[in-house]
Computed example of a mutant assay.
Amino acid sequence: MDKTCYQLQQSIDAAHQGLLLREYLKKEMHISRRMLSAIKYKGGHLQVNGEEKTVRHVLQDGDILTITMPPEVPSDFLVSEEMPLDIVYEDDFFVIVNKQAGIPVIPSHQYPSGTLANGLLAYFEKENLASTVHIINRLDRNTSGLMLVAKNRFSHERFFKMQKRKEIHRRYLAFVQGTLSNDEGLIDAPIGRREGSAIERTVDWRAGRRSITQYKVLKRFPDCTLVAVRLQTGRTHQIRVHFASMGNPLLGDDLYGGPAERIERQALHSFELRFIHPFTGVPFHLHAPYPEDMARLVNLSIELKKI
């Protein structure tokens, strides 16, 4: 059975009568030149009232435009592997997954299989989608929480532009070692690679890239502090490096000096995701509950939706 290519259908109104199809696709559908080229030459279709048309076709009031995206072929290094997925939301455009700690997001030399992308590809194949996996926001292997994944390249392009405009908002929960004296704060310190390491990052005032982390203390405990964190930039290991640089590494984060006696991974959870649906305009505001290993650290009774 042939896999299903993603289709988008639009009804043309009087305000757009007389426009060339090319102009409508660019101005109203925000389809890039690269995407249009893929539709035209890589197996996609442009149809008006069920008939194939070129981009020079003149649109009329009441026309029904159907755009069929070309089939997508996964990269050679990505193979499908069935695995349990905690899917919080799904529609024709994207899925939102609550990722467990310990699962890498994409294959690498260190983790060639068993990643979230492998599991999502198997899920897409089960849905008979002619698509591959488009990760919008990555999380470290040992970070849990909400992840946004586009189901086709058209959706991915929209979300990529939203990310650049900072229209996708995320917040994290973190347990940091010790006590933070301020109830809230801003960490503005550049981050770069640690010399001699392919993995570690460090605050580097000479060659690092500007990195800004905003935090709010939720609750103080005798030996640690629970904080809600919002990123203004998205550097690798940003939250972990910034709090470690203050002398307050995350619990369980032995890479950056955090104590590992009470939790076996960095105590970091992406608990909130907020954005406007790029196709329907519907506001999305989702929360992921505390993961069990973080909840066991203390008696957590804070309601996430009120943070």
Rank of each mutant, 00 (worst) to 15 (best):
D204A: 09
Y89V: 02
P70M: 06
F243N: 13
T202Q: 11
E184H: 15
S113N: 05
L36P: 00
D61I: 12
P283M: 02
T143A: 07
D92P: 03
S155R: 01
Y172V: 05
E125Q: 15
M69I: 15
H287A: 10
L186N: 09
V229C: 09
T179K: 08
E28L: 14
E125P: 08
G114V: 12
R34A: 11
K40M: 11
G119R: 09
A267K: 05
K164C: 01
D253K: 10
K219N: 15
M294C: 09
L21M: 10
G252R: 04
K151N: 01
A15N: 10
L231P: 11
V88G: 02
H242Q: 12
N128R: 14
Q266R: 09
V58Y: 10
S155N: 03
A244H: 04
H57N: 08
M162S: 00
N128S: 14
M246A: 04
V48H: 05
G44C: 04
K219T: 15
H237W: 05
P259V: 15
H269D: 09
A244Y: 03
I168Y: 00
F275S: 00
K3E: 10
R22D: 10
L250Q: 13
P283C: 01
N142K: 11
V229R: 03
V203R: 05
Q177Y: 14
P289M: 04
I191Q: 12
L255Q: 09
L251F: 09
G145S: 08
Y41P: 05
S80H: 03
M147V: 11
D76H: 12
L180M: 06
G114Q: 08
I31N: 00
T132R: 09
H287P: 02
K219G: 07
M29R: 14
I199E: 13
C224S: 08
N98H: 07
I96G: 00
D86F: 06
I103P: 00
L146R: 01
I67H: 01
H156L: 01
L120S: 03
R56N: 15
A117C: 02
K42G: 00
K126V: 09
S80T: 03
N98D: 07
A15L: 12
K53T: 12
K306W: 09
F77A: 08
E261Y: 13
G257Q: 07
G102K: 02
P249I: 00
H285Y: 07
G44N: 05
G102N: 04
Q110N: 05
R210Q: 14
C224Y: 04
S245Q: 10
V79F: 14
E23W: 11
E81V: 11
Y256Q: 12
S181V: 08
E272G: 01
E28I: 14
N118C: 11
G257H: 07
R265Y: 12
I67P: 04
V73N: 14
K306C: 12
P278M: 01
L231E: 15
Y111C: 09
L226M: 04
L25Q: 01
A38Q: 07
P289C: 04
E292D: 11
L304I: 15
I135G: 00
I212L: 05
I87F: 01
A198Q: 13
N128V: 08
A189P: 02
D13G: 11
I239S: 12
T4R: 06
L139E: 01
I276S: 06
